[in-house]
């Protein structure tokens, strides 16, 4: 019968598939770790390329001493402020862009102009405008997040199915409610992609900015930690810093973005599952 929904079976298959997937991912991680360890031992030069075990020892030490924790916390705090501000501005700008053709073209021009401009190129200016401190870093993070997210959000809004638009108009929704009730959920797959890209951009910008000047209000972030340890030629500690950034990346990807994805676009059947 064509009239029977197919949910039960698909869910079971999906669960099985995702278990297999996790297994495959774990195997690849273990393989990479093994190669790292073997190469590190073979090279036997912790100053150039410490092995995995040396990195783990450094990581544990630096976590134990609290340095990595305070640096990590510092980075995350700055990052979150800049990221949320950037996403918020992108949302306001894209909503305004929906109100008229002129506003949309303005946003598209601005995005085309500023999106390719590396955030770090603005840092010297930012230092003059906002001084030596968190404000400058937040400014460059906002710059790196805003345009990437706005670009995705805008193209997402524009590709929302014309039928859904007509439905929104049919019910006589105001612009704000139209954006909130139709465009935002309708464009959610590309908005989510934009949020992920923005998150990655924010990290890159943050670490680069901290290399240029890391210490603000007494403590530095992960970029500053890496820079400092390199100056002291504590390369295993440098690796520990890099691994920390990667761990944050994995935690946010699987802990946050995947969870959002599973509860929204996957559940709604708006994202084809490649698993």
């Amino acid at each position: 019968m064509t009239d029977e929904p197919i949910i039960g079976e698909t869910t079971r298959i999906e669960v099985k598939k995702s278990k297999e997937n996790t297994k495959r991912r774990l195997i690849s991680v273990i393989l990479i770790c093994a190669m790292w360890e073997i190469y590190g031992r073979w090279l036997n030069s912790p100053l150039l390329f410490p092995s995995l075990s040396e990195t783990i020892v450094a990581l544990v030490n630096k976590i134990g001493s609290g340095e990595l924790i305070s640096a990590g916390w510092h980075s995350i705090a700055t990052l979150t402020k800049g990221y949320l501000l950037g996403v918020g501005l992108a949302f306001v700008a894209t909503t305004l862009a929906m109100s008229s053709r002129f506003a949309r073209e303005l946003l598209e021009t601005l995005t085309a102009m500023f999106n390719p401009l590396p955030a770090i190129a603005l840092l010297p200016l930012s230092l003059i405008w906002f001084g030596l401190g968190e404000g400058s870093i937040i400014f460059v993070i906002v710059h790196s997040v805003l345009w990437a997210v706005a670009l995705n959000m805008n193209s997402g809004f524009r590709s929302v199915s014309p039928t859904w638009r007509m439905i929104g108009q049919n019910y006589g929704l105001s612009l704000i409610r139209f954006v909130y009730l139709i465009l935002l959920p309708g464009a959610f797959p590309s908005i989510l992609a934009g949020l992920k890209v923005g998150w990655a951009f924010a990290w890159r910008t943050l670490i680069a900015a901290e290399f240029v000047f890391g210490v603000s209000s007494g403590s530095g972030g992960l970029g500053w930690f890496i820079y400092n340890e390199r100056n002291q030629l504590e390369i295993p500690n440098v690796f520990a810093g890099l691994v920390t950034i990667m761990l944050f990346g994995v935690i946010f990807e699987y802990g946050l973005f995947r969870t959002i994805e599973n509860r929204t676009v996957r559940r709604w059947g708006m994202q084809m599952d490649d698993r």
């Binding site: 199915s161 039928t163 859904w164 007509m166 439905i167 108009q169 049919n170 019910y171 006589g172 139709i182 959920p185 309708g186 959610f188 929204t264 709604w268 059947g269 708006m270």
Partner: peptide, 18 residues
């Protein structure tokens, strides 16, 4: 457009998937 004239479309995607 107004809700005194409700529209039923041909497309299956007229329902909101979210």
């Amino acid at each position: 457009p107004g809700p005194d004239r409700m529209m039923v479309f041909q497309e299956f995607d007229q329902l909101l998937p979210w």
